[in-house]
Amino acid sequence: MFFNHLPTNFAALEVGQHLYWQIGNIRLHGQVFLTSWILLGALLVFISLGTKKMENDPKGMQNLLEFLWDYIRDLARTQIGEKVYRDWMPFIGTLFLFVFVSNWGGALIPWRLIKLPSGELGAPTADINTTIALALLVSLSYFYAGLSNKGWRYFEYYVHPTPIMLPFKILEDFTKPLSLSFRLFGNILADELVVGVLVFLVPLVLPIPVMFLGLFTSAIQALIFATLAAYYIGEAVEEHH
């Protein structure tokens, strides 16, 4: 399975091709880890530079990081509530930063210039494994949040206004991770495909507005993912009266 440089295969080759890493008898999508390591490395470098010398009177990068922190705190506080948002803020913030950095990194960096033997580098969130992993983490988190905050009373939520809701609420536990993962995956993949196909068809000018639209979608998707995760956790810890 080698990369074919024929332009007619340009778009065709991008979809569903992976750089496989074989470790023992498990197989990994190497390109997902490569891009995520590069992007997360850049994020961590940026954050450690920004938090190296923090002052009461913020300057430069500290301002940006404090703005980001404040943004994430507001997000977590409005969705989860004053009482427990502190416990979940790092998780919500990590989801937001991971998805945002992955989406924007995938859209902004010209990964195509780096040739792989198979598949190609791109946004880690355009791989279904990543989005399902994130969505399952969210599911586990809201179960854990509900059970640790309310104990067995968490299950009152399932029959909350009336017991008729029980099947729907159980169904929701499956649809929540499904919709979370597929929304993110679909949006980012679609954006990459649209840009790829447009670049292939009209290499000049025309893809640029679509690229901007892609950046917008990417940011919105990160916000949506983090907000929904926080909302689910908030729903689980909410006290019914």
Binding site: F33, L40, S48, I72, T94, P124, N129, T130, A133, L134
Partner: peptide, 25 residues
């Protein structure tokens, strides 16, 4: 194509949560 990338990515995100918590949040 779902494979071991999924659990490893989940572990990576959990690790990232702890790293970002101590480094940023």
């Amino acid at each position: 194509d779902i494979n071991a990338t999924l659990p490893l990515m989940a572990i990576q995100v959990i690790a990232l949560t702890y790293i970002l918590n101590s480094l940023f949040f």
